[in-house]
């Protein structure tokens, strides 16, 4: 057995720099559509919403309750079960659902399903995703109807909403930006749908891109969602790319505080599996967007005595 000092030195050498953060990612290039789709399902964060973890539901079989100001949505079954899932969907059905927010039966989806973001995915990524979903075990679980307040309970109301707020133009790469920034933007806007939580919504529930990624006090499930623009005081302007990637891998901020809630799920079911290059691209893109000064903060608990203020 080597002396202790040598062992520590060896560990030190192996822990150096980026190696620590990159080893958990699958860096082997995938070959089949389903394998590529296995990566898309992580990058697009499908599992967290389409799985009823609290109720012990099977992965991707839906049924998770999503409490919003408009009522409670129950996510649908997206396993390939032909009766209760999406097993009968054609490629065109699947592409239409993601790019237009329309079901095979012609119903307009609620924007709780982030098709506004997914519409910007490439068709190739959509079809790889479908190949992955169809390679999973079919689970028979009938969809739970949404429980929404009037007038949102009227699905027809989704149609004028779309006219007002939805555009399915693709996400064209910015020719002036570096490839890494364009890749990061695609991961953030099309796949990761970060803005669905991190950008505030207007009174009709549409994301308001004037305040792109600057956080909101009324996020999903009543959570406070932080400002992730590079504003130094209220956003992540002081974070390095490494800080951001470390958070995606472990769920810890640079100050050692742990993330919980929706972002913990986004990490555990998705982000932590992405490649080092992709996580760095997301971080580089976030650092490149316009900083917005906006402080998202919960009202402090009433002071019972003393002025000790722990944050």
């Amino acid at each position: 057995m080597p002396p202790r000092g040598v062992t520590i030195a060896l560990i030190g050498a192996s822990l150096l720099a980026g190696a620590f953060l990159s080893r958990t990612a699958a860096d082997e290039p995938p070959t089949s559509p389903a394998e590529r789709g296995a990566y898309i399902v992580r990058a697009a964060g499908c599992i967290a919403c389409h799985t009823d973890k609290k109720g012990g539901g099977k992965e991707l079989a839906g049924g998770r309750a999503m409490v919003t100001p408009y009522g409670t949505f129950y996510t649908p079954n997206i396993t390939p079960d032909p009766e209760t899932g999406i097993g009968k969907w054609s490629d065109e059905d699947f592409v239409k659902a993601l790019s237009e927010g329309v079901s095979p039966a012609g119903d307009h989806y609620y924007p709780a399903f982030p098709y506004s973001s997914y519409a910007r995915m490439t068709r190739a990524d959509m079809l790889d995703l479908k190949a992955f979903l169809f390679a999973q075990a079919p689970i028979a679980r009938p969809n739970t109807p949404h429980d929404l307040i009037f007038p949102f309970s009227l699905r027809i109301a989704n149609w004028p909403w779309k006219l007002l707020f939805f555009s399915n133009r693709p996400l064209d790469p910015d020719p002036k930006a570096a490839p890494e920034i364009n890749r990061g933007r695609y991961l953030v806007d099309a796949l990761g749908h970060c803005g669905e939580c991190h950008t505030p919504r207007n009174i009709l529930g549409a994301v308001d891109n004037e305040d792109y990624l600057s956080g909101t006090k009324s996020g999903p499930e009543g959570e406070l969602v932080p400002n992730i623009t590079p504003d130094v005081e209220t956003g992540i302007g002081n974070w390095s790319v490494k800080d951001i990637v470390f958070l995606f891998r472990t769920g810890f901020r640079p100050d050692g505080n742990d993330l919980q809630g929706g972002m913990r799920e986004a990490i555990d079911d998705g982000l932590k599996y992405l490649s080092q290059a992709d996580l760095e691209a997301i971080a580089a893109y976030l650092k490149s967007i316009p900083p917005i000064h906006y402080q998202v903060r919960a009202p402090r608990p009433p002071k019972a005595g003393g002025d000790f203020n722990f944050d």
């Binding site: 720099a17 620590f20 953060l21 470390f246």
Partner: peptide, 10 residues
């Protein structure tokens, strides 16, 4: 955790 993170980030 912050200390571990600083090592992890190199």
């Amino acid at each position: 955790i912050t200390a571990i993170a600083m090592v992890a980030k190199g």
